[in-house]
Computed example of a mutant assay.
Amino acid sequence: MAEGSISYALVRKVAAEKSVDPEVLTPLHDVIDPDALESLFDDSDGSMLRDGYIVFSYEGFTVRVDHDREITLSEGRAEA
């Protein structure tokens, strides 16, 4: 997980919110494909997410990542 990546920022934010070391969290790849997540926010091929967001559950939180790379955590699981 690269230090400037959405995945890295997400795991660090969840770990901080739970006051735990990131290594004790469930591996992100067990929940969502990190490569797919990164591709939504990587503009190297001109296909970056320009509007909208992605929502999923991770470690007891609903995680929302907006098109501008802002990560928001809410307690509880995301509704399907």
Rank of each mutant, 00 (worst) to 15 (best):
A16I: 00
E38C: 07
S39Y: 03
E79Q: 11
P27T: 04
L49S: 04
E38I: 07
I6M: 01
K18D: 06
V63M: 02
R64Y: 02
T62I: 06
R69K: 15
E59L: 06
V31Y: 05
G46L: 12
R69T: 15
H29L: 01
L25V: 02
S44R: 14
D43G: 15
R50V: 03
P22K: 10
H67E: 13
T72A: 12
D66C: 12
V14H: 01
D33W: 00
F56E: 02
P22M: 10
I32G: 02
V24H: 06
S39I: 01
D30I: 02
A36R: 10
D68F: 13
R12C: 08
E59F: 07
V55Q: 11
E3T: 14
S7G: 13
M1H: 15
E38F: 04
I71P: 06
D68G: 14
D43Q: 14
A36F: 07
S39A: 09
V20A: 13
R69E: 15
G60I: 05
H67A: 15
P22N: 10
V24C: 07
E23I: 13
A16G: 05
L37S: 07
E38N: 03
H29S: 12
S47L: 15
R50D: 06
E38D: 05
P27V: 06
A2L: 15
S47M: 15
I32Q: 05
E79H: 08
G60V: 09
V63Y: 00
E3L: 11
L37Q: 01
A2H: 08
Y8M: 08
R64W: 00
G76Q: 05
S57G: 11
K13M: 10
R12I: 00
I32R: 06
R69D: 13
I6D: 00
P34S: 01
L40S: 06
V31Q: 09
A78F: 04
R64K: 11
K13P: 03
G46R: 10
D30K: 07
V65A: 03
S44N: 12
F56C: 04
A78T: 05
V20I: 14
D43K: 05
G46I: 10
P34F: 03
S74E: 10
S39L: 07
P22S: 09
T72E: 12
T62V: 02
D33K: 00
I6F: 02
L28G: 07
D51F: 13
S57A: 10
Y58H: 07
S74L: 08
L37W: 03
E17R: 09
I54H: 03
A78C: 09
F56P: 03
D42W: 01
